[in-house]
């Protein structure tokens, strides 16, 4: 059992993640011991990241909220079966991603977008929008909205596995190893999917790319 746990820990990418995984495991043990309220700590800790992944996969804020809640419920129901072979966050991500993929496959024909607003305080996004609007002299807010729509459209044109990989890598900043673990595939597959998805997005978003 210890060997399995050690192997699970080696899959965690960085030392920060290692510390995070250890603290998560403590909380999980408390929940498993019957302290149900401790689960709320995990919810508060991961709700933003899980929501972000699901939202970027669906491009629909209502669906994202529902699916995130479902992921937490499922993890709560199955927490007694969680043995720590992977980190809690990987396990939770896997539940969320799988629920989202099932949802997307079920509603393949129904594509309805509802976007979150771009956070104006975010430094990187402000820089990017400024760089793009300086040449054209367009209104930044209008341009930001248009760019957001184009980005989401381009994302939705990707297949579900490619979209998942690009979301987890570029938006959620997970490592190849973590993505492979979440998606239950090899690191090589993750890399090739990532490469292909980037090529497609590059072609779609060519008018917004400045070299």
């Amino acid at each position: 059992m210890d060997a399995v746990k050690t192997f699970g820990k080696t899959l965690v990418a960085s030392p920060e993640r290692q510390v995070e995984a250890d603290s998560d495991m403590d909380i999980v043990r408390r929940v498993q011991a019957g302290e149900v309220a401790a689960f709320d700590q995990l919810v508060v800790k991961y709700r933003g990241r899980v929501y972000s992944v699901v939202y970027n996969l669906t491009s629909n804020r209502e669906d994202a909220a529902d699916l995130t809640q479902d992921a937490f419920i499922k993890s709560f129901q199955s927490i007694n079966r969680f043995q720590g072979q992977s980190s809690f966050f990987t396990w939770l991500y896997r539940i969320a991603v799988n629920s989202t993929l099932t949802h997307l496959r079920k509603n393949r024909l129904r594509t309805f977008f509802s976007f979150e607003k771009i956070n104006e305080d975010d430094k990187v996004s402000a820089e990017v929008i400024a760089a793009l609007t300086d040449d054209t002299g367009a209104d930044r807010e209008t341009f930001a909205r248009e760019l957001q729509e184009k980005l989401n459209e381009a994302m939705q044109k990707l297949s579900i596995p490619h979209r998942t990989v690009i979301t987890l890598f570029e938006i959620d900043a997970l490592s190849h190893q973590e993505i492979a673990e979440i998606m239950n595939c090899s690191v090589g597959t993750v890399r090739s999917r990532l490469h292909y998805a980037k090529q497609l997005l590059q072609a779609e978003l060519q008018p917004y790319i400045r070299r």
Partner: peptide, 22 residues
Amino acid sequence: MKESPRKTTVSLEDLLRLKRAE
């Protein structure tokens, strides 16, 4: 939008970082 330092190049990764701000 707040004023920010001038950035001349915009890559795909920069565009995708916008998604983080949603």
